[in-house]
């Protein structure tokens, strides 16, 4: 079982991923993931790395 801290951390990650989907940086392969970068997401990560 998860501790409440772990459950809260998971919830925050899920919310962050959902937000990235609405920003078209990630796409969910199924309803509950896994997720992949979109073309736009790949461009963003490349800019981050520079």
């Amino acid at each position: 079982a998860l501790t409440s801290e772990e459950a809260q951390a998971n919830k925050i990650k899920r919310q962050a991923a959902d937000r990235l989907v609405t920003m078209r940086l990630l796409k969910a392969m199924e309803v509950d993931g896994p997720w992949r970068l979109t073309d736009l997401g790949r461009e963003y990560v490349q800019r981050l790395a520079q």
Partner: peptide
Amino acid sequence: LTSEQNQLMIQASQSGTLHLPIEDP
């Protein structure tokens, strides 16, 4: 983006796919 979101983006980039635990019901 937030640091959390950037972290997820980098994780997805490095692994190819991003897997997150399913929330407890």
